[in-house]
Write a protein that binds this DNA or RNA. Structure first.
Lengths: 193, 193
DNA sequence: CCAAAAACAGAACGCTCGTTACAGTACAGT
DNA sequence: ACTGTACTGTAACGAGCGTTCTGTTTTTGG
């Protein structure tokens, strides 16, 4: 534990939210548990965020930005078209290995499921995540599938989503490897034509 | 509307649970809404099931049995190895087309997400669903991938799960078709080797 | 060093939800 | 007709939750 000089209350709250909420469940975690994890008083939470939902939304936005950053790193490290397309799986592996971001499967999909009547704010993050994936995967699909790029991008997004879901199923065959294989064979199939 | 001679209370409850709970959200739907949808009084629910969670569990078990039945039909209708492997996607399409079973994406995955501290009873259904998928897909993979059957089965399960998740994302490119394509190219890739 | 802002602990409020209790009604089988 | 079972409508309870309030203490900056 790198306990440093103790973060300010707002940051502690966001960190606790990210670590507890998306791992134990959003609705299943009462505000009190969050306060305890963040070592913060109730009043502080509500002066900073106004509501639990707003804190959830902010934590989701930050998680999306973090995730995007990790993905970026794996993209620049890739040295060919196929590796760039598959970088999303390496990014997922490294993001999940990071103990700072435990989560049962996917924070965005979980939020959409747990808060169906979610404030615009919350469902917007899942939309943003989906849009980010769709845009980038389409971009990386072009050199591999040409006119069929959209089809390949759809397929890789599906493989990626399936990988996330496999964590929820507790399926034992290292989902990330399976997802990568699936995406690769889809890409090769398009390349052949 | 085929309003028949009105089902008994227990059946009305299970039907309402299946239709409302898995579409609007399990936790998001209060018991009162269920009672109203089933046209049943509170006492009746609790004499029959004992708790909301028990009703959820029973509705999930029935849904799994129904789904398995639909899948069965599409398996026997298939006339070659590839069609049998891909029948799971046709079954999904026909199950979703059925107005009796609306659901935002997948009842079992939703239940696992919404009720993380779920009674053994509830999480067991997701485990049973996963086991059913794993077993059957492995069986249908064998003639297509031989020794690599397990790998292919894992891949198809991932494609299937990804398809379900795509509904939650609201992704616009008919997820079932994408999933089927993905599964097919995985199978062909194994067949080639 | 002092004033202003930020954070604190803890109690309390109001609401929703799951669940139960109660008294009354429809209807089956014998 | 009688008895038991299934069901109804309504009201109430108790717990848990998100949120707010009060007064006090700590931190910060000029």
């Amino acid at each position: 534990m790198t306990t440093g000089p103790r973060l300010p209350a707002r940051a502690r709250l966001l960190k606790a939210a990210d670590q507890v909420l998306f791992d134990q469940g959003i609705r299943a975690t009462p505000v009190d548990a969050l306060l305890q994890a963040a070592e913060v008083s109730a009043a502080t939470l509500y002066t900073h965020f106004g509501s639990k939902d707003a804190l959830v939304a902010e934590a989701l936005r930050i998680r999306l930005a973090d995730w995007q950053g990790v993905w970026d790193q794996h993209i620049v490290a890739a040295d060919n078209d196929m590796a760039r397309l598959l970088a999303v799986f390496d990014a997922l592996a490294s993001y999940r290995r990071d103990q700072d971001h435990p989560s049962r499967w996917c924070a965005f999909l979980a939020a959409a499921t747990e808060l169906p009547a979610a404030a615009e704010e919350i469902s917007a993050v899942l939309a943003a995540d989906t849009a980010l994936l769709a845009t980038r995967l389409l971009h990386f699909s072009r050199p591999l599938a040409g006119l069929r790029a959209q089809d390949l991008a759809d397929e890789v997004l599906l493989a990626y989503s399936g990988t996330l879901t496999a964590f929820l199923r507790g399926y034992p065959h290292s989902p990330i490897d399976v997802g990568r294989r699936l995406a690769r064979s889809a890409a090769e199939a398009h390349g052949r034509k």
